[in-house]
C-alpha cells in the first residue's frame, strides 16, 4: 500500500521534474516545479517529517516559487525557444556529464549503507525540531538570520535605480 503510494508520487515527481527541464515556456516550468515540490512534501510526510513537509509547502512551493513566477511574468520573455541549447556539441557534453553524475550517485547509493536498515519511529514534529534548533543549533540559526538580512540588503542594493536623477528631473518638471 505505502509502496504503491511511493511509486506513484516518485513517478509524478520525476515526470514533472523532466517537464521543468524540457519545457518551452518558463511559466509552465515554474508550475511543474511546484508540482515536484508538492510530491516531495508527500514523501516527507511518508518519511515521518511533517514539519519539513509543511516548510516545503509554505516556503518552497509558496514563497520561493511565487518569487520565481513573479520574475518570469515581470520579464515577459517574448521568444520562448524550444530546448534553447547552444550548439549540439555543448548539449551532448551536458548529457554525457549528467549521465556520469547519475552513474556515480547510483554507485554511491549501492555501496553506502545497510540495505536492511530498520525503519525508525517518527520524530520530525515541530516540538523536537524546535528543541534541537534552539539548543544545539542556536548559533547556525542566528547566522542564518544574518544571511537572510544580508540577502535582503543585497537585493535592494542591486535593483535600486539611481533615484537622484529621477528626483531632480521631477523637481524641474
Amino acid at each position: 500500500m505505502e509502496l504503491t503510494l511511493f511509486a506513484l508520487v516518485a513517478l509524478a515527481a520525476v515526470a514533472s521534474a523532466l517537464m521543468v527541464v524540457i519545457g518551452k515556456n518558463p511559466v509552465y516550468s515554474v508550475l511543474f516545479l511546484v508540482t515536484t515540490f508538492f510530491c516531495l512534501a508527500i514523501l516527507y510526510v511518508m518519511l515521518g517529517a511533517p514539519f519539513v513537509a509543511a516548510l516545503q509547502v509554505i516556503v518552497y512551493a509558496g514563497a520561493i516559487m511565487v518569487l520565481f513566477l513573479f520574475v518570469v511574468m515581470l520579464l515577459n520573455l517574448r521568444h520562448p525557444q524550444k530546448w534553447d541549447a547552444g550548439g549540439s556539441t555543448r548539449r551532448w557534453i551536458g548529457f554525457a556529464t549528467a549521465a556520469g553524475v547519475l552513474l556515480v550517485s547510483l554507485a554511491a547509493v549501492k555501496g553506502a549503507f545497510d540495505p536492511n536498515a530498520p525503519l525508525q519511529p517518527e520524530m520530525g514534529n515541530a516540538e523536537s525540531i524546535g528543541m534541537a534548533l534552539f539548543t544545539r543549533f542556536l548559533l547556525p540559526f542566528e547566522i542564518g538570520s544574518i544571511l537572510l538580512l544580508a540577502a535582503i540588503i543585497g537585493v535592494v542594493t542591486l535593483l535600486k535605480r539611481d533615484n537622484s536623477k529621477v528626483a531632480t528631473k521631477g523637481g524641474e518638471a
Binding site: 521534474a17 527541464v21 547510483l106
Partner: peptide
C-alpha cells in the same frame, strides 16, 4: 536515495543544456 539521484541528475541536465537563466 535512487529517486533523489534521479532528480539530481535531471537538475544537472537542466543546468548544463539550457540557456535560459531562469530555467
Amino acid at each position: 536515495l535512487i529517486l533523489s539521484a534521479v532528480l539530481f541528475t535531471i537538475g544537472v541536465t537542466g543546468v548544463l543544456t539550457r540557456r535560459n537563466a531562469l530555467i
